[in-house]
């Protein structure tokens, strides 16, 4: 279970978000560009620090302004997928996936085994030695996901996971992604602009406006709020 209460002053407004996500549950964050969706993910994974508040994951406190706790991002065990995937351009597919394990000083044979296994599950085995610059959008997405999942994270944060994937491949990638998230059985937050993502990946939908949660419920509940301008255009 992930619970967060974070406050941070941004350029245009004060972000003040309180959320919780259960294990095995997927929360989809929607909202206008600049409403603070990616910032929320950065505050949870530790790339940004809240001005005050608390972030707890299971029985671990990742951040607490009162308890003066701020676990650095490398020790949070949070899988964070960036919109552009941020694959390391100077490494092959296998080196990218092995990166986190090598940082954790896992013995080499174990790394080789885990990476090979992860690549096989993600249908990337043939691409192991390919430089990531030569991959398609869908392949890059799978490498980024493999790189995060190989570490068995306690939480998964996905920022526009399918935005860089071909339109035609999106449907298949989406159901594959859904399967991976369900398998991992951890809390998951997905940021998206895509209605299909919201409907197919989300157990819950959360609407952010200028750094505040203005709606939180099942996709059906939230999408029926037609009086809201963003929902009106989002649900088409």
């Amino acid at each position: 279970m992930l619970s967060i209460h974070t406050v941070r002053e941004l350029r245009d407004y004060v972000l003040d978000v309180t959320l919780s996500v259960r294990s095995g549950e997927t929360l989809v964050l929607i909202g206008e560009n600049g409403s603070g969706k990616s910032t929320v993910l950065n505050l949870i994974s530790g790339i940004l620090t809240p001005d005050r508040g608390e972030v707890t994951l299971g029985d671990r406190t990742l951040f607490s302004s009162e308890g003066k706790t701020n676990i650095p991002p490398e020790n949070r065990k949070v899988g964070h997928l960036f919109q552009s995937y941020a694959l390391f351009p100077h490494m092959t597919v296998a080196e990218n996936v092995a990166f986190g394990l090598r940082c954790r000083k896992v013995p080499r044979p174990t790394i080789a085994f885990s990476v090979a296994n992860q690549l096989r599950v993600m249908h990337l085995a043939d691409l192991a030695d390919v430089n990531v610059g030569r991959l398609s959008g869908g392949q890059r997405q799978r490498v980024a996901l493999a790189r995060a999942l190989v570490l068995n994270p306690d939480l998964l944060l996905l920022d526009e996971p399918l935005a860089a994937v071909d339109m035609r491949a999106q449907g298949a990638m989406r159901s594959e992604l859904r399967g991976r998230i369900k398998n991992a059985d951890i809390p998951c937050i997905v940021v998206t602009h895509n209605l299909r993502d919201a409907l197919e990946l989300g157990d819950r939908l959360c609407l952010l406006e200028e750094g505040r949660v203005v709606a939180d419920g099942t996709p059906e509940e939230v999408l029926s709020m037609r009086e809201n301008g963003f929902i009106e255009s989002f649900a088409g």
């Binding site: 950065n42 994974s45 530790g46 790339i47 650095p72 991002p73 490398e74 020790n75 949070r76 949070v78 899988g79 964070h80 960036f82 552009s84 941020a86 390391f88 351009p89 990166f99 986190g100 940082c103 954790r104 790189r147 995060a148 570490l151």
Partner: peptide, 22 residues
């Protein structure tokens, strides 16, 4: 791009490792 450094941190790299490896 500092995005690579951020990604490396979330994957478990300390600031020193980020400098040396990324």
């Amino acid at each position: 791009d500092s995005l690579y450094e951020d990604a490396a941190r979330t994957l478990g790299a300390s600031p020193g490792t980020v400098a040396l490896r990324i």
